[in-house]
Nucleic acid binder design. Sequence first.
DNA 1: GTGACTATTGACTATCTGTCAATAGAGGAG
DNA 2: CTCCTCTATTGACAGATAGTCAATAGTCAC
Lengths: 195, 195
Amino acid sequence: MEADRRTRLAPDERRAQLVALGVASLADRPLEALTIEYLSAQAGVSRGLLFYYFGSKQGLHREVVSTARDSMLHATEPAGHFPPLSRLHDTLTRIVQFVRDHRGTFFSLVRGAASGDREVREVVEQARAVQAERVIAVFLEMGVADSEMLRIALRAWVAFAEQTLVDSALNTEMSSEEIVSFLERSVKAVTQAVR
Amino acid sequence: MEADRRTRLAPDERRAQLVALGVASLADRPLEALTIEYLSAQAGVSRGLLFYYFGSKQGLHREVVSTARDSMLHATEPAGHFPPLSRLHDTLTRIVQFVRDHRGTFFSLVRGAASGDREVREVVEQARAVQAERVIAVFLEMGVADSEMLRIALRAWVAFAEQTLVDSALNTEMSSEEIVSFLERSVKAVTQAVR
DNA sequence: GTGACTATTGACTATCTGTCAATAGAGGAG
DNA sequence: CTCCTCTATTGACAGATAGTCAATAGTCAC
């Protein structure tokens, strides 16, 4: 009978709490189910407060998706300095691990967030751009010639990898090694198909 | 001063008119902009009528997207009987052509329609399944061994091809032959990466 | 304690989806 | 040609959800 009394937090804390709740609920709900109504109820806070912090529903979505995206990018960042192919192997291994550890988050991010708002889409698009950049760097370091087609190809390969991860890491019992190894072979194959 | 008088059409005609209007507006607007409000205004008809025909907004979306999808699948269906690789070449050529002839529709279909409703998503997913089936058939006929990984790989390649088309056919002046040829090389490469 | 700053609320508006009984166009029977 | 019936079409209504804003109440500094 007092948990419902108004509790006033520092803006940073409140914001962090709300975003964290949002990210967490992506694990078992699509982004579109993250309504102002739902999240404010979850947080035990008025709807008005969410507008105070995020301005709009899409503002909220942007922050939540950005945060989920950053945690994925961070979790799949190669640690230390490897030679190019080892770094690729390391990153792919981390991604498969991340997908299996955060199925819901990964799926909501790469599938659900294609929805609605253009700016939200762009947030996810940035993640793909970063992943593509990482892969491009690997091949450039190995002496592959840069070209428009190479960039298109490796950006498309990121989409390929996402779909592969959804179908293999999420929906089969395939071993991580097998998946990683297939992704490695496929990206090399695609790179060679650029001429 | 009489165009606004109530005009009563046969259900088939009215339905066809509304769906056609919906598909047409996909050419320059994302699916989410296709609201009941907007389409009824376009058609010069009451909002209630759209519910009478489609039951819900998502019902409308399903029909519009299904129709757009079917027109794409139909336009990219290989004509006549070719040997496998020629058939592949033919289909890819038709797809590039379709993408360039119907930029808006293609983009709304493969990008915009990932949104909202699960059933709408599945409508587009079916198109990908059909495209994947076509490609799988090509390689099976060529004696490639069937396997779970092959199917995952070629389904993922469809996503690869979509992204390639968005980036090349929509956003560059690259020649159709160049795009088709790259897609051919990449799908063969991916198939060989399955082991 | 008291005052000031601002995090938080709740009541209000706007927009859009969805429901349904009432209405009117169009074709057939006479 | 007229009326009658069937149903395509409407408009008024209800419900959900986004967004606005002036009023309120924690909390910290003094």
